[in-house]
Amino acid sequence: MNWKFSTVVELLDRAREAGLSLPAYLLARESFYSGKGEDELRAELARRIRVTKTALDRGIREPQRSFSSMTDGGAAKLAHGEAWPVEDELFRRALAYSLSINEVNACGGKVIAFPTAGSCGVAPGLLWAYRDARDPSLGPDSPRFQDAFVVASAVGMLIALRATLAGSAGGCQAECGAAAAMAAAGLAFLLGEEPEGCFDAAALSLKNCLGLACDPVAGLVEVPCAKRNAFMAANALTAVCLRRAGISSVIPFDEVVGAMKAIGDAMPAAIRESAEGGLAATPTGMSFRAKIQ
């Protein structure tokens, strides 16, 4: 079996050559490299999916307040607030869940870096929102739900292989942007899209995060990171809505990743996680920095 790929085109070819679905191919590959059986890997996926759920519930139940005071129980407000302008259960849950997981992270709770800690709320938040709002038969132990996380991971792997997942190297497009693309692919999968459709949704989503600055206030994973997790869940949901309406990305996923790499390389260091530019350099940003140091 050939386990090497660096583009969607190659990845889908490998799966086809192997006569396996995309998630089955990726699990077989994981099994090859880790030496673990598929049952053991699925149990590990279920365990990690449960960690995302525990974080999600915690942030909504207990308002999360951070040491810096910049994180202040936003997810709990979002989940329980009465003034709510959009009549859609999926949308509201997606925002609240994604924010919740990232607030728990900001406050030192347990999460899964997916692909990083600063962007860990987006994909699990959106996938759990779909589960709770639309399909309660899904859960950590259902192979289809696990496969959605696998498809989302495939998007992250491809970005890691040809660009980067580090804000210090590629700005926030590499973290929350990647997470949005991953979330879009995962949700598209749950809605029955073929792998091509999942990567198309990922391309739509990622295109709309290109050039995003990583300018964390005081160098902490809070502002703008935590709320951006909610915004990116909305981005991913928009991408999936477009895809389901039959709208495709003019620029294919592999080329969007290439563009992301080129843009990341051209970004000044001040907006690549150095906490020296952008929001971090605003008067309010600087006052938070002075306060915590």
Partner: peptide
């Protein structure tokens, strides 16, 4: 290094930063 599924969907970690805390 080979990038695997559980590298992307992981690590399981105590926040807030994968590079500044988990690493």
């Amino acid at each position: 290094r080979t990038i695997t599924l559980l590298d992307i969907f992981g690590p399981v970690m105590i926040g807030p930063s994968s590079s500044h805390t988990a690493g």
